[in-house]
Simulated assay, not measured.
Amino acid sequence: MDEMNTDVNKYMDLAIQYGAEYGIRIIGAIAIFVIGKWVAKKLSGLIKKLMERGEVDPTLSAFVASIIDILLMVVVVLAAIKNLGIDTTSFIAILGAAGLAIGLALQGTFGNIGSGVILILFRPFEVGNFIAVGGESGTVEAITLFNTTLLTPDNKVILIPNSTVAAGNITNFSKKAERRVDFVFGIGYDDDLKLAKATLQEIIDADTRILKFPESFIGVGELGDSSVNFTVRVWVKASDYWGVHFDTTEKVKLTFDAKGISIPYPQMDIHLDPTKA
């Protein structure tokens, strides 16, 4: 009986000893986790606010803040585990191996994220711009960390991976406030050249959307196979580009018809030598 009591007391002493030792460690680990989580949230929130004050794109600031929060939480969890007396070297190795495997599996995705960060930082285009990229043209609806969304003139939505956007040529038609509209109008060789040129000038001068500066240009650009071709270049606000393009083309045709100026079809004149007929 005495031996049994001795064993019970021995185990109770051990339980109290380990309970006191590991209880303090568990309480410490919980405290580290709770306080560390609070600090991580506050720090990531502070960084996000600083980036927003610096007028950094909201998408980028939210992404950077979330990455920092994740990294800080990893550090907090490792610190809490280490406080329990567990060797964290193996955990770090496992995390490193897992990170490498995930990186290799998602390298395309990370490439899109990296390209998205570059696009957001350097801003070759913005939401609302009309651009041509990756073989597609449209108005930019959204720029995320993974892809760029275009809305085509016929109302189709196109998602282009950011890696494709950043790696190719980007044509931004909306970057500048003004654009040049180029025309080529042909008249017949028998038509009055001066009258045609004066008529083109009248049409341009009558359109208030066409800017006075930079000055418009009208000149004979080519003596073609079937026509004398005028090169016409006018400057307009970017928003007026297509309106001026279509309206001027229609106006030239109607005015040329009214003044008897021909717009010839492609043709070929064949002359027969009567001595060899």
Rank of each mutant, 00 (worst) to 15 (best):
D2K: 14
E3F: 11
V8I: 15
D13S: 11
L14M: 13
A15I: 14
A31I: 13
F33K: 06
V34I: 15
G36I: 04
K42D: 02
I47F: 05
K48L: 02
M51D: 03
D57A: 11
A65H: 04
D69A: 15
L72A: 10
L72T: 03
V76G: 04
A79H: 08
T89F: 05
T89V: 10
T89Q: 12
A93V: 13
L95N: 08
G96M: 13
L100W: 10
A101G: 12
G103C: 06
T109Y: 10
F110W: 06
F110R: 05
G114I: 10
V117M: 05
I118V: 11
I118N: 07
I120M: 14
F122N: 12
R123E: 13
E126K: 15
N129K: 13
N129R: 09
F130T: 04
L150R: 10
P153Y: 01
I158S: 05
I160D: 01
T164Q: 13
N169Q: 15
I170T: 01
F173C: 06
E178I: 07
R179N: 14
R180K: 15
F185S: 00
D191M: 08
K194M: 12
L195F: 05
L200M: 05
E202M: 08
I204S: 00
I210S: 00
K212I: 01
F213R: 12
F217I: 11
L223K: 06
L223R: 14
G224Q: 11
R233D: 10
W235A: 11
Y241V: 12
Y241C: 05
W242V: 09
H245E: 14
T248L: 05
F256V: 03
F256Q: 02
A258Q: 14
S262D: 03
P264M: 03
Y265R: 12
D269H: 10
T275V: 12
K276E: 03
